[in-house]
Each structure stands twice: as C-alpha cells, then as structure tokens.
Design a protein around this nucleic acid. Structure first.
Length: 238
DNA sequence: CGCCAGGTGGGAT
DNA sequence: ATCCCACATGGC
C-alpha cells in the first residue's frame, strides 16, 4: 500500500510530537527552549547572527556524525567566544581543529568552517541577513546538497526539503522510492508531495530523524512502529 | 571489540 | 555519470 507523504507526516507527528528543530544548544534552558536547545512548536528561530551562525556551524559539524559529538564541539566554541563568522575567520585552523575535535573529521571540518565563515563575512559574498541561493552555497568547498538545504531551511526559512541518510532509508523501506535515487530526485519527491512550506519541511525532516532513531534504524525495530501498516519492509528479514 | 552516526570532495573507471 | 575511498570521534 502506497503512503502519501502527508499521511506519513501526520502519523509521525502524532507519534512523536513537534521536534523543535534546529536545536540551538547555546539557548538551552532559556525561555522557549528545552535543556538541549530544542524549541518545539516555535518555528521563528533563529533571529540573531550568532544563532544563525550556530546552525551553519552545526550543519557542517554534523556531517556523517552523531549530534552529541557536535554538541560538545559547539560548547567548546562558545566557551572560547567563537560565535560569529568574524570570530571564526580569524581563528587559526589548527586551534579550530582542536576545539571541534569531538565532531570527527576535524581537519576537514575546520577547513570547511573557515570557508563558510569567510564567505559570510566578505561583503562581496554571502550575507547573514538575506538568503543565499542554493548554488551560492553549493559553490563553497565543504557544503554539499544536504548542508546547503539545511542552511536554506533552518537558517533562512526557505522551503528546501533536507534529504539525509535517514530519509533515504525510510522511503526505500516504505517502498515509496526505489533504491539509489539521486539526492535532487529524492528531494523532488518531497517538493511534489507536500505543500511548499518551511514549517512543514522543518518538522517533517526532524520527525524522520526521530523516527529513524527510534524505529527505522540500520537494524529495524518494527515493534510499535507508527507506520508499520504502510511499510513494504515489515515482515521481511526480521 | 565492531558498528554506527542528521556527508563531502576527489580521483579512477 | 557512477563507483570507491579518505576523512575521525564518541557512544553503545
């Protein structure tokens, strides 16, 4: 049985509730934020340059990496007063690498952060106050499709659906798409199947991540899965 | 111990 | 265009 994407959204939202992405650990515990910086049901963040930049940094640091490892790195950066593009741009790459060590691939990511910081700092290049194009972002070394879309969606509230490894795994198992579909084609499935709303894309992506962690893992835990009745995988292997 | 985690760029085929 | 690999830490 083929499942509409909006039905998937409704089932996941009913099961897990609003997720409060993108998390801002720097705001943890403040009004409107939980202990880890999530803000469920409030899509009005980020507002300030440090908040926006924290998302850009987080989006780069979380590439193929667990968020808990990123949280440690963000905390370290904050403790050292690195919260704006200008702070990062003047920080030596070697020192930066030490600060973000916990996020893995730290030499590569230190370089990626510098590239992004300099791009958003240069008057001739990108601005934190107006959305760049997707092509602008993809032109930066270290920013690929998922990171570009994360920035467009979660920093600039532009309706670009973020496709990650979880999204692919879930849709392939559900039987919604075939294996090995290209990123942009998979994104097009969401753009065609859902209203073009940044709040909806925000929540949907976050819900998929939560669902993939709880049930649709590498080794699936189908017991109690809220979308099992729609799933082509259910029953296989086990 | 091995596997996995909110990818990306570069080089070979 | 597509496949393959390096990049690296921390949690379970």
């Amino acid at each position: 049985m083929k499942m509409l994407l909006f039905t998937l959204y409704e089932k996941l939202l009913a099961a897990y509730g609003p997720q409060g992405w993108w998390p801002l650990p720097s705001r943890a515990g403040r009004k409107g934020f939980d202990a880890r910086g999530y803000h469920p049901g409030d899509y009005s963040w980020p507002r300030t340059v440090p908040e926006k930049f924290e998302i850009i940094v987080g989006a780069i640091l979380t590439q193929n990496t667990a968020w808990t490892n990123v949280e440690m790195a963000l905390q370290r950066l904050r403790a050292e007063g690195i919260t704006r593009p200008a702070d990062l741009a003047v920080c030596p790459t070697s020192r930066l690498g030490r600060m973000i060590r916990s996020s893995g691939y730290f030499n590569q990511k230190a370089k990626k952060l510098k590239v992004a910081a300099e791009a958003f700092l240069s008057p001739a290049s990108l601005s934190m106050s107006r959305a760049p194009t997707r092509e602008d972002l993809l032109g930066l070394w270290g920013i690929g499709r998922e990171t570009a879309d994360s920035i467009l969606l979660y920093v600039f509230q532009k309706p670009f659906f973020v496709v990650d490894a979880y999204t692919r795994r879930l849709l392939e198992r559900l039987g919604t798409v075939g294996p090995g579909m290209a990123y942009d084609d998979l994104q097009a499935v969401f753009h065609a199947g859902l209203p073009r709303s940044h709040e909806l894309y925000n929540e949907m992506h976050a819900l998929i991540v939560e669902h993939a962690k709880r049930h649709c893992r590498t080794k699936p835990l189908c017991a109690g899965c809220p979308v099992a009745r729609f799933c082509a995988w259910r029953g296989k292997n086990a």
